[in-house]
Design a binder for these strands. Structure first.
Lengths: 218, 218, 218, 218
DNA sequence: AATGAATGAGGGTTCATTCAT
DNA sequence: AATGAATGAACCCTCATTCAT
């Protein structure tokens, strides 16, 4: 067998095809969460990924682990988008709010809808596997908001949690299935919300500015 | 009792206990839609309502019929709130936008999240049972918005659908889970969104102002 | 109350409307057994009979009792047909076999298909309620066969059980529903079977001539 | 093993245990249709087959598919019996009717009662899966009857449908119940019916000679 | 490592039967 | 006596997960 020809790598190397399978499964799940909601049968995900159903369980102990993996992937992509925005803002302070707007709309497009499972009751958003990704996401968005705040373009009574949760909510996939007309609304709503975020504030806000961390406090 | 005064109605009068059950089922379903999303097992609804499972089917031929009943109930309650707002605005033109704000926050409290099933693919928003309720709801909100628009307080590039969908989305229960911290955000988000709705508009909106009808046109 | 005016009858008299209901229920059940098989929901029987479902239970302790009542009714009707055949045969010995033929086809028409429940596993064909009806039925058919046998027209190695069971089987309603094309076959089959019953016998029969009573022996 | 000699087939070969299960399920269903009629709970079939309930659905998408498989199996067995009869008749023309008799009794033993579901309203006898089996069955019986007809031993006013339906009816399991005494009658009835089929005809038949196809024409 | 097959628990719905008016 | 309503058990089917190849 050809494993015998390369014995030195055998123990540590995840086999190339296994890696490929893992990624294919995550990608398939991400697409299907967006398309069909968080309830897709895992057998369907396996089929779309082109692997057997049991292979999913070899890579992910249970449904929750796959879901978390998908969420982590999306978080990383969105973090990347936020960092692009920071770069833009750093290049031109006057562009800070524009960079925030651009980021918000891009994040909405970035399959953020695949994060829909986080809304399900079984999902534990504080799972250790997600810690790093969430912190990085939060930090990058916070940084981006700080740029706009420093430029006097963002109201000062809000924090990253306000933006993140609203962004999640406004882009949510309408549980159960794809309501394609929804897409027409999403960017309008985001735009309206962003208008509301601008300085000067047009109203007093109830409650306190909140970070994502705060979500876990109650 | 008035049965004595109108004995001719005796045959068709629904029994008191049956009516009570029916209402208990609708109330239980409303709460559970808010808490757990549109997919709650009907057996759980029955348990929460304190009736046997088959009783649910005696009153509602299938899941869809129950869902429509819940939606109709919520629509009617929200319509009532909008009409209160109209009265307020009519009494004092300067209070028009304040009345809109009050309405939005009150609607959020009014379990509007129980309307979440309307977003599921199986839901038929054009079902005859809902026609009246939806038209009245839309008309009353439109009227309320018109008051604020006439007072020059509401931007002119939005329509009732924009408000309704965003309201639904922003108040959605993080379906399934008990995330009580959510409530802290909801009114902040609504307030921010309302700030974005104020005239003068702070940005151009993509797409077109939309009515509720438009939601299903695509 | 008028029960007070006729106290002597009070205890024994079934109310006229109750009697009417009882008969309507049996009639409805008979028709529906023929049309839809032995599995019709009792609620449907009640509806067809024009009474409430619970009324069925007031008259018949459970489904089995209703079924037995229907079967008894049909047995009585068929008995009457057999007795007509006997009269014909007695009037003209040469007509004995013709009378048997006529009886068999008439019995098939006489909703004997409503006896289909006797074939269900739950049915107890030896229930006391049916004893009399079955004995009279058996006796009358036996008598009719005896006329044909005496006239030398019927083979001698068969008994009433052979005819009754075959008659039931050949006229059975095709469980589950109405297979209307079936009717085209029934009288052909009966005719062929009757041809096989004629003397002289064309073959040896396995087993023993059997009465209905024998059915219970095993 | 031959997998080594034909490795290219490896991917599609059904697993041995799966095949065994599939056959066990069909066999269990066949027996239970005979014993309890076409309405047996599939869970019971699964139990009798010694598999989990879901395994039934893995092999057969729904109840209909299992039923068709059972029917097909029985048709094939009966076809084989008819072909044996043809061979006998071809070897000795005088044995043609005897071969038909032998076939009929053998078919009765061959659990032909398991075909009872074909009489239910939900059953689609024209389903593609059954086409071949039904044509072969009909053709083989027709051929066998033709031998007897050619030998002048079978009346000429009947067709294959007459025989098939009567055979089905007379051998039907008293669905649902364990009425073992029934077996005593079946072969007597078949014998009597076969006597009625012999030439010369002893009576005129109503209706028309019918093929199996005719069963569903109305 | 990967797979197809098997499994049991659970959800929706129907129906015989019981209860309250 | 009659009824409409209520009930729970049962059935069909699906799906997450485990097993055997």
């Amino acid at each position: 067998m050809d494993t015998a020809t390369e014995p030195q790598r055998r123990a540590t190397r995840p086999r190339a095809d296994a890696l490929r399978n893992r990624e294919r499964i995550v990608a398939a799940a991400r697409e299907m969460f967006v398309e069909y909601g968080a309830d897709v049968p895992l057998d369907e995900v396996a089929r779309r990924a082109g692997v057997g159903n049991a292979t999913v369980y070899r890579h992910f102990a249970d449904r929750g682990e796959l879901v978390r993996q998908v969420v982590r992937t999306v978080m990383e992509r969105v973090t990347a988008l936020a960092e692009q925005g920071i770069a833009t803002a750093d290049a031109d302070e006057g562009a800070a709010y524009g960079a925030l707007r651009t980021f918000v709309h891009a994040a909405a497009e970035e399959r953020i809808g695949a994060m829909c499972p986080i809304l399900s009751p079984e999902f534990d958003p504080f799972h250790p596997e997600l810690l790093d990704a969430r912190e990085q996401l939060e930090r990058s968005i916070e940084d981006l908001m700080e740029r706009a705040r420093a430029a006097g373009q963002l109201r000062t009574d809000i924090a990253v949690g306000d933006l993140m949760v609203a962004l999640s909510q406004l882009t949510r996939p309408l549980p159960g299935t794809a309501c394609p007309s929804m897409d027409r609304f999403i960017h309008r709503h985001l735009q309206l919300f962003l208008d509301g975020l601008m300085a000067p504030a047009r109203s007093d806000l109830p409650g306190e500015a909140a970070t994502l961390q705060d979500l876990r406090q109650d």
